[in-house]
Simulated assay, not measured.
Amino acid sequence: MNTAAPDPRLEHARRLLDADELTLDQLGAAVGLSPTHLQRRFKDAFGLSPAEYRAQKKLSRLKHELRGPGDVTRALYEAGYGSASRVYEDGAARLGMLPGAYRRGGEGLTIHWSPIDTRLGKALIAATERGLCAIALGDDEAALEAELRDEFPQAQIARVQAGRDDFLAPRVQAVADLLAGKRGQVPIELIGTAFQQRVWEALMKIPRGETRSYAELAAQVGQPRAARAVARACAQNRLAVIVPCHRIIRADGSLGGYRWGLPRKDALLRAESGKTARQRG
């Protein structure tokens, strides 16, 4: 895995993008690189093109502004969007809902969730009318529910018993089968940046029982020097097991990190490979 520090000119370019919306030509002139070279090297270093990085920063600012005082229009312009139509065209897909609903903490959104007991502990499975929005693992059902409610404080969040919701029931069963080590598929909608989606889609192509290193996955998505960006995308995955970020390990064979705890990651890998804990050790 390449751990060398990025070229100082690329770090300078990133700082400039943090401060202002520069075109690729303007950015290249400011750091002394041609637009073509800057585009390629920036993406190699950070996993995003300068335009994708700028869009991600704007989306982050928009989320912050939408959570604060004031109306939606003010939030749009404070975040740097030139018009409301721009964020409704591309921002809505990344937020997973219209900006007004996000600002209101999911107001108007209905989320049904079910808890299930698995060999990995508790699992929370949640869905809107559009599809699964969360699969979380933990030790405490109340803590998992609190995390969901914290993300969408104004949404109508209803706990339902597994099997008692016509939309959620088949998805709960499919996820339960996956958590039990069975094979299966569940329809999902990936909501994230273009780079995150490429990483998550690549994760889902890793065969059961196999693993990849962060560097190998970075190469698979066409960004061989973006192993750290790949690791961040794995950490931001909201759909445990279905998007199998547990199949990514370090180049030395150690487990690395896992959002839902290393013991669960180890258990998932052992179940998929058919190995015992002693054999893995």
Rank of each mutant, 00 (worst) to 15 (best):
G209L: 09
L178Y: 09
L48P: 00
H246D: 00
G192R: 08
I111P: 00
P244F: 02
V243W: 04
R278A: 15
A174K: 03
R208S: 14
Q156M: 14
L190G: 05
E145W: 01
T118G: 04
G138K: 02
R198T: 13
L217T: 06
C234H: 05
E107Y: 03
Q26F: 11
T128K: 04
R86W: 14
R270V: 08
K63H: 01
Y77F: 14
G274Y: 09
E210P: 02
R54K: 10
A4W: 07
V175Q: 00
R130Y: 13
L10K: 00
K205C: 12
L124K: 02
G131L: 02
V186Y: 00
R103E: 01
V31E: 04
F195A: 13
A134H: 08
Y214H: 13
D71L: 14
M1D: 04
A169Y: 09
H37R: 14
R41A: 13
Q223Y: 15
A267D: 07
G131N: 08
A227V: 07
Q223M: 13
L16K: 01
K182F: 13
G209T: 04
K275P: 02
S34H: 09
T23H: 11
L268K: 05
V31D: 03
L38W: 03
D18Q: 14
A143V: 11
E107I: 06
T110C: 08
Q279F: 02
V175W: 03
E65D: 12
G91E: 01
R264F: 11
E21Y: 09
S273C: 07
R94F: 06
R54P: 08
V72N: 07
L66K: 00
I248R: 00
R183C: 15
A226W: 00
L255G: 08
A143T: 11
G32R: 04
D140M: 09
G181I: 08
G261K: 09
A231W: 01
R61Q: 04
I191D: 01
